[in-house]
């Protein structure tokens, strides 16, 4: 490798994503506790810490933690209400679950030496797949065959409608793909870039620039961690709206 030839630099930006068993061993069975397990469990603990322990006072005038919990609640609640409508509020706990998991996994993943479950396509594909299957089943249960009107654009001229139907159908099935790859890709890319710059910091004359770049990209990643959780959640709301009200 060219980088190694330059003397001492060894950059392994993807090593941080390797899934390892927590307690030694090589084989990874489906039940083996791994670093992914650890950081998912920490996300659960963080959720409990913020939304349960943080609100234990049930105060009329909230403490700081309770304010943050209420802010998160209000943020997602309003998003579901505004995008999916009043009848979408039944699904608020599910959407809140997705949001809390993604946002906390993202933020915990920004801790140096940590592992980010949401950087793995397996995780995001399951999340997006859950949304896709739920929304599709819900669309047919709620609207029956009328759900197919989602693909039949009535406002378009008749000859165009079959073509549009094909496009709509493709875009509908691409949804889970883009939904999952957007999240995993953003998180993975950011973390990999951080690692690359960190590798360059080993060379004395690049180190200052490298460290500056790490700082800047870290700040960007903090933003991305929240924005990707927000995007995933709001897209879920949009898909939910399509299932509840398939008429354009």
């Amino acid at each position: 490798m060219a980088t190694e030839a330059e003397g001492g630099i060894s950059i392994h930006p993807m090593d941080q994503f390797i899934i390892k068993p927590l307690f030694g061993g090589e084989h990874i069975a489906f039940y083996t506790p791994t670093n992914a397990t650890l950081w998912m469990a920490l996300a659960v603990l963080a959720t409990i810490g913020l939304l349960v322990v943080g609100t234990r006072g049930r105060a009329i005038v909230p403490s700081r933690m309770q304010s943050v919990a209420e802010l998160a609640y209000g943020f997602v609640y309003k998003m579901v209400e505004d995008v999916a409508g009043k009848d979408g509020l039944k699904f608020f706990p599910y959407i809140m679950t997705l949001f809390m998991f993604i946002v906390l996994a993202n933020f915990l993943g920004l801790i140096p030496m940590s592992f980010t479950p949401t950087s793995h396509i397996a995780v995001t594909a399951v999340l997006a797949g859950l949304v896709f299957v739920t929304v599709t089943v819900l669309g047919f249960v709620k609207n029956g065959a009328h759900f197919l009107e989602l693909f039949w654009v009535k406002s378009a001229p008749l000859p165009l409608r079959p073509i549009l139907a094909v496009i709509e159908l493709i875009s509908y099935f691409v949804r889970p793909v883009s939904h999952s790859i957007r999240l995993a890709g953003n998180i993975m890319a950011g973390h990999a870039v951080l690692k690359v710059f960190a590798g360059f910091a080993a060379v004395a004359w690049i180190a200052p620039a490298s460290i500056l770049a790490i700082t800047a990209i870290y700040a960007l990643e903090v933003l991305v961690a929240f924005i990707q959780a927000y995007v995933f959640t709001i897209l879920t709301c949009v898909y939910l709206k399509d299932a509840l009200h398939p008429h354009h």
Partner: peptide
């Protein structure tokens, strides 16, 4: 492995929420 633990995680978060 990931899918199994993710499912547990999501169920745990959902129940808590």
């Amino acid at each position: 492995n990931q899918i199994f633990w993710l499912a547990l995680t999501l169920i745990a978060i959902y129940l808590v929420l």
